[in-house]
Simulated scan of single mutants.
Amino acid sequence: MTPHTDGPGAAGRVLVASDLDRTLIYSAAALELTMPDPRAPRLLCVETYEHKPLSFMTEEASGLLAALAARALFVPATTRTPEQYRRIRLPGPPPRYAVCANGGRLLVDGKSDPEWRERVRERLTECAPLEQVRARMLRRAGAEWLLKERIADGLFAYLVVERSLLPETWVKELAAWAGPQGWNVSLQGRKIYAVPQPLTKSAAVAEVARRTGSTLTFAAGDSLLDADLLSAADVAWRPAHGELADSGWQLPHVRVVPERGVLAGETVLRRMSAALAQPHGATEGG
């Protein structure tokens, strides 16, 4: 396939790939507005669901993202399905490329790329079938804490749980079983994900870089499902909250912003913008 070289993302330009939920956008429960009310940042709603506001970013972060997307190729990289992703209205023009379903779907101008979808299907033959993993999750789940279960785009499974009632060791036990089956487990907010190991955001982002001729990649994320994305980037950032923070996960090229909640998203964008202004994307102290 001939690489696209028009506009942001042309050869030599920077590709910025970022997780969305709890990295750039936040539910009301995840905002962590701990400052006095008069000092709370102004918020912009970027997602509604069933006629109700669902996800937010600060107004300052909104401006930073729009400016960043005008200077680099911005690629949302999310575990959301395409349908869930399309509910979000980020500032600026719609991104040409978006990674959905944790790398299972590559959207190009809003449409799923069939070539990428077929390559994903081939890779998933390397691990245990989805139904086997789903059955294990449901068989071990407790009725007192399981709220609902879902299959995402026919690719992976997740449970929505009551965190206060979830046994402390349940996720670790599932992960210990799932690993040898070729699956990863991640706890994000109220959701427990089981995702095939070949299904990665980094692989889909690498495909976007190949198609666009991008030579430098920035990335951001907060969960264990973002670890491969951050690992593969040239420079990356993570907030002081989330699974990666809780586990102490770190690499030399991954910068940690000190903020938690919605202000972390703003700081990530500010530091990405500063790095973009420097030669070769260098950063000074993160």
Rank of each mutant, 00 (worst) to 15 (best):
E266C: 09
T215W: 10
E259H: 03
T267L: 10
A176M: 04
E173P: 00
A209P: 01
F218K: 03
R211D: 00
D246P: 12
G242C: 00
A282H: 14
D246S: 14
Q278S: 12
L187T: 10
A274D: 09
S273H: 14
K201Y: 05
V262M: 08
K201V: 08
Q197P: 01
R271S: 08
S202A: 01
H280K: 05
K201L: 15
A175H: 08
H241D: 03
G179C: 15
D246N: 06
W177V: 14
L244W: 03
A275Q: 14
M272C: 06
Q181P: 10
H253K: 04
G182I: 15
S214T: 13
L230Q: 08
P239C: 15
L251Q: 08
L244A: 11
R270P: 05
Q188L: 11
D226C: 01
Y193N: 04
Q278L: 14
V195E: 13
R190D: 13
D222R: 02
V268P: 13
D228K: 06
A236M: 15
G221F: 00
A275N: 06
L187A: 10
V235Y: 11
E259I: 13
A175N: 05
D228C: 09
L251A: 13
V257Q: 02
A275W: 10
A206N: 15
S231C: 14
A219P: 12
V268E: 00
R270V: 14
L224E: 13
G248L: 09
S231V: 11
R190T: 10
G179S: 15
A194G: 01
L263S: 10
Q250T: 14
R190W: 03
T217K: 04
L216R: 10
L244Q: 15
V208H: 01
P279R: 04
G221A: 12
L263I: 07
A264E: 03
L269H: 04
R271W: 11
S214R: 09
S202H: 12
S214C: 05
L216C: 06
A232E: 09
V268W: 02
V205K: 02
Q188R: 07
P239M: 05
R211P: 04
I192Q: 01
V208I: 02
T215P: 15
G265V: 00
S223L: 01
A209V: 02
A227D: 06
A245H: 06
A209T: 02
E266S: 14
F218H: 09
E243Q: 07
Q197R: 12
R210Q: 07
G182Q: 07
A275G: 03
S273P: 02
R238H: 05
L269S: 04
A194Y: 06
